[in-house]
Design a binder for these strands. Structure first.
Lengths: 336, 336
DNA sequence: GAATCCTATGCAATCGATTGCGTAAGTATA
DNA sequence: TATACTTACGCAATCGATTGCATAGGATTC
């Protein structure tokens, strides 16, 4: 039974002292002499005592927990299965664990904001890490009004008081297109996520800017927005080809989608990069193992995860929110 | 400031009643007349009141939280990036959320058991979901001794009092090999995860059994154990071919690894399945988009995640732990 | 030996919500 | 009118750990 778990009073009784003394001994308070401390610690170990985190956190008015939130698009409650997220999540939880914090995760609807109340006002967590900014300026102001600590995985947000970490998606999108254009590609397709996800939209803006800089005409037939999944990307390819038969390059907003695109193209008998170049985004582990190997834009995923945690803790200590732009890198392999 | 958040006493004062009444009204206690309840609810909403989950959970001696633990091999603290896990995690968190529970996640070392104390004894969580059984019989007994509620993602464990959910990996491994053998393949390689991960070892046993049933000779040169990553699988392929040049099939323990294998083989100029068949395991979303499309064993991932949660809640309600074997399905596509 | 100062420890309040028990009204019954 | 019964609500304890303040008793100083 878990009901017979010893409390601090049980230890106190067994040691013949008061609960205060036990608490202080266990927390290495200097007013308790070392010998007493050692005795109490020993006894606690023997009796298999462990602090009740719930009681402690309640008393200390903290949660010692950080939530990592994954926004999803309302209509499609589809599973996020992009390895990118898992890799980042791993980095985040490890970093939080290192600081003794627990990691809460949840998928939240991108269009509502009531989850912030749920996590902050309910005092379930001390801070929030949000993967991809599915939050408009009003949403950010609302979070700030709650005096919430949070960090968003997204490019810099002008004039907003919020901490961000990510590469500048406008620039990565532009660089991708310029690379394709430099290879002599003209009909460059774009496959992105839904527009409510800000990052994907910034990449679209970068794409437009890149096309402009390269002196290439743009029309909306070249752009397609789907959810962030391999299947969706696979379905998008024939559609894009039907709209624009002379398509000679595709820039996909994630490696996962890009890999699916390559496979579908090959299945249709189109050579990559011979007939069509394909570029991805993120540089996940699998990207270097495909055939042809995927040309992509690398985001330092794990470093990004760690920085988000760091940035959050800076705020815990009273520092103002920082906007961190990560360096990205064009990884030229074989697919483009 | 978050310090001016109203507590239940503030609401009580404003309403001119006692905290008890507010609590009961908010919890729809029948002894409070409907009109009073409505007034108090209204007032609470106006004052922006929300229960402090920490205080409530502490008082109620529960955590309203479930931990999902991902064991990792000691040496390689590598990131888990297999999409399989993320898809399952999504299903789990959604199902927990539906029941009003929070989702805690952590990566834990497979070889130690002190994390169970950390989560159960510290009363951080009400139950544990463990992805892949990195836990021997003693570990299971230890958890039971703590009166912990937990569910393990693994095949049935004989004679152990623990809840499990998964396909029977011995059978899936066997079925995979028999399919390859039925196609006339004789030199069938096996690429698995480290052996401490029980599931991968069971698949190895299934592989051996399948080879035996098919009357094929086995030698250890055909088997390779790596971590569960695309890179590792990619490195494994040339090694396997060097050991056994006549290799005509590979069974990889995950689709992610299988896809990497296919890509590497194609990069080496070997036709799949012409020269070498490749089989995966899991049927992740990407599997149907590759070229050639991947033949694999489907595990019902999302159903599995939901069932783990269900099984855990049955235990919360006093039911004994159940061992659930999920149906698997051979998905024959093009790669084998 | 008295005054002073430490040192080690205990007392009791506190964090916010919940709930068993008690009771003052109000209502129904005899 | 007295008694019994309801209804609606408050009192106070409780969950387990932490911590400001108080203090007993020993050590130190003059």
């Amino acid at each position: 039974m878990s009901s017979n778990r010893p409390t601090i009073s049980d230890i106190a009784r067994a040691a013949g002292v008061s609960p205060s003394t036990v608490s202080r001994a266990l927390n290495n308070h200097p007013t308790i002499p070392e010998t007493t401390r050692e005795q109490i610690r020993l006894l606690a170990r023997q009796m298999n005592y462990r602090v009740d985190t719930r009681a402690r956190n309640f008393r200390l008015q903290r949660s010692q927990t950080v939530a990592t939130l994954f926004p999803f698009q309302g209509a499609s409650r589809r599973q996020i299965s992009d390895p990118f997220y898992l890799e980042m999540l791993g980095a985040i939880t490890d970093e939080l664990d290192k600081r003794g914090y627990d990691s809460l995760i949840a998928r939240v609807p991108a269009e509502s904001t009531d989850w912030c109340e749920r996590y902050i006002l309910d005092k379930r967590v001390d801070g929030i890490l949000m993967i991809d900014r599915a939050l408009d300026d009003a949403g950010i102001r609302a979070l700030n009004a709650l005096d919430a600590r949070f960090v968003i995985w997204c490019g810099p947000v002008e004039g907003a008081a919020c901490a961000t970490v990510a590469c500048d998606s406008r620039v990565t999108g532009r660089d991708a297109v310029l690379h394709l254009a430099a290879q002599g590609r003209h009909k460059i397709g774009f496959i992105g996520g839904f527009q409510r996800m800000v990052e994907t939209d910034l990449r679209r803006q970068g794409y437009l800017q890149g096309m402009h800089e390269a002196g290439l005409p743009v029309n909306s037939d070249l752009m397609l927005f789907t959810d962030f999944s391999a299947e969706a990307a696979a379905h998008a390819v024939p559609l894009l080809l039907k709209r624009e038969p002379k398509l000679d390059a595709i820039f996909a907003c994630s490696d996962f989608m890009a890999i699916a695109c390559m496979q579908v193209l090959q299945g249709m008998g189109r050579a990559v990069p011979g007939d069509i170049s394909v570029m991805g985004h993120d540089d996940i582990a699998l990207a270097s193992q495909t055939s042809p190997r995927l040309t992509t834009i690398r985001q330092p995923i794990q470093q990004g995860g760690r920085l988000m945690v760091q940035s959050l803790f800076e705020q815990f200590e009273g520092a103002p929110p920082r906007q961190i732009v990560l360096p990205h890198e064009l990884i030229v392999r074989e697919s483009a």
